[in-house]
Design a protein around this nucleic acid. Structure first.
Lengths: 212, 212
DNA sequence: CCATGCAGTTAACAACTGTTCTCTGGAATT
DNA sequence: AATTCCAGAGAACAGTTGTTAACTGCATGG
């Protein structure tokens, strides 16, 4: 179904991706609101004016980065929440998945955590929308669970938001563990996983007794 | 005990405070990493070089803002967690307190939420330290509760962190509710309070059944 | 009362920013 | 084969930035 792009469009997308990659790199030590367009083009090796062929502004680029960072994550979320096995094992599996994602895409995770409450409104909104989508998807998945019998839609959604926020906090903690020196990094990661697992377990307990 | 400052020191502190206030205002629509020193001095009405008499850099000013925003909050935290009454009422009281704080100091709350994962390392660290202090204080307060009998220190601390993070999320949501148009603002705030209360209640349930 | 200290000023610097306009070379279309 | 299109280059713009140096005037301490 995918129509092969012409040489022209292919080259354009390549530069566009290079701009996104360079920006993501530069954003490891600053916020989007201080990211300059010239800074990005310099890092890529193109003229400043080339930027305008792809984005209206750095805020616009930021919105594109949100799509890149979160857009492809929806299938993963679904499979994380659902799945079989005893609760303890499911929690461990979910946290392991988060840890792997942070390991694989640390810059994306950092970007989302940073700009979720950052200084650029359109980007904040884009992230909020994506996270709301996540919450709704988690809710739908929770609804299938036999444990959710008797739950209102409203209560399921509030639990889903709790889970999503908790995932983000955990991801951010894994990132911090990654940031320090190599020495003891694995241990720091294990400690984060340990605490996160117990928090998830406690939330799971609250869920179990919700209808009492 | 407080020694009356000389005219000189008093005037200095006054400009210093003016710089902090102006910065906090400017930070409502951008992040600290893009805040310029000239921008701040211009807003206050002093020469750019005057800035250096008070702060080494905008990052340094940011650290001072963390102290201002969170330093005076410790007594409040303690009384929020402790206190008597049935659980339902305590939850409602805690959320009411958060709502009031956000109403009274929206710029401070925004600053903390924004810079907690922001682009300026020393500021992130300062916030992390303060929040860790909060968590330890909450833990100490939880330890006094009869419900905490049989809990390990470790488990109490993980619960405390859960509470602190939850408070921050709730505060940030109240802030969002405040940001839109006047129309329906009260309703948005009530909705935030409603969801937050149920999440706190669920966590409280998990806490109650932790030792099962 | 006089000398010192120091908060804030003034002026100047090189470097940087976003944005506009004009141009070019090669892919795409006819 | 001739024409159109368009991603990217180049140069120039006015305005901004952080930092330095030398200054001024006034509160302070001897």
């Amino acid at each position: 179904m995918s129509h092969t792009l012409g040489i022209r469009q292919a080259q354009k997308q390549k530069t566009r991706q290079a701009l996104l990659d360079a920006a993501l790199g530069l954003l490891e030590e600053q916020s989007l609101s201080s990211l300059g367009l010239r800074e990005v083009t310099r890092a890529v090796g193109v003229a400043p004016t080339a930027f305008y062929r792809h984005f209206r502004s750095t805020a616009d680029l930021g919105v594109a980065l949100v799509e890149e960072a979160l857009g492809s994550l929806h299938p993963m979320i679904r499979t994380t929440v659902s799945g079989t096995g005893d609760p303890e094992e499911r929690v461990a599996r979910a946290i392991e998945l988060i840890a792997r994602h942070v390991d694989g895409y640390p810059a994306h995770v950092r970007f989302i955590a940073r700009e979720r409450h950052g200084g650029v409104q359109p980007v904040r909104e884009a992230i909020r929308d994506q996270l709301s989508r996540f919450a709704r998807e988690v809710k739908d998945e929770l609804a299938k669970d036999p444990e959710s019998e008797g739950w209102t839609e409203d209560d399921l959604l509030m639990l889903a938001h709790l889970y999503v926020d908790q995932m983000l906090i955990t991801a951010s903690l894994f990132l911090e563990a990654l940031e320090g020196p190599e020495e003891g990094r694995e241990e720091r990661k294990r400690e984060v996983a340990r605490v996160a697992a117990r928090q998830m377990r406690l939330i799971g307990l609250g869920r179990h007794h919700w209808l009492d």
